[in-house]
Design a protein around this nucleic acid. Sequence first.
DNA 1: TTCTTTTATCGTAATATTGCATTATACCGA
DNA 2: TCGGTATAATGCAATATTACGATAAAAGAA
Lengths: 109, 109
Amino acid sequence: MGLTKSEAFTKQQNEVANLAKAVAHPARIAILEHLLKTDVCITGDLVEVLPLAQATVSQHLRELKKAGLIKGDIQGTSVCYCLDKDKWKTFINTFDNLFERIKRVTKCC
Amino acid sequence: MGLTKSEAFTKQQNEVANLAKAVAHPARIAILEHLLKTDVCITGDLVEVLPLAQATVSQHLRELKKAGLIKGDIQGTSVCYCLDKDKWKTFINTFDNLFERIKRVTKCC
DNA sequence: TTCTTTTATCGTAATATTGCATTATACCGA
DNA sequence: TCGGTATAATGCAATATTACGATAAAAGAA
């Protein structure tokens, strides 16, 4: 079907999955890496760096914005993007928590 | 198109994206959480816990196995699944590295 | 106003993912 | 060997994602 049964899982499970989905594409990783290098950037910068068309880059930016991982401020004719530190704090805490629990696992088959 | 241009991105970017994709579904998060609770489990356990058909659970298990995050050992009629600690070490290191870089970001728009 | 620049959105096409019923496959006990 | 039980594989249908060209929208320059 291609339709995830989100309602059948807990809110937290969906939240973790959605955050993971936001970074589950190399183009979006590349966008984040570019933002780490340059602090802020505009779509035009990314179109030059990424091997994708402008429309596709815009789409990936929208995905990241939808997940809340980046913010965009309109500045004249261009839009200035940057990481949303608050949302990332949530992201990092969520996964650190999962990682800690996994690190404590010892038994295996 | 639905076809990710993987070859246009670096190996590392694809690796991070693929690891993220492996956990980008609430059912797979639920599977991992069940494994954290029980250390080991078989498909039958999961079918009872998850709101999904056996075939679907098996498919999600295969995704996790493909990503290397879990291992499966055949034990008689059933397959015993558990977390692959080594692969998780890689996963955690990869994301900890990203998280550290993000924590250091200060500038924003 | 008109042109240019920049970004977003729409429409379309192709592939991927999700989910399930059904069908194999494998092992064990009688 | 034959059923019973359990997992895996296959095939199908429906939705989601990815990508891009074309178009729209918004702001500044000429």
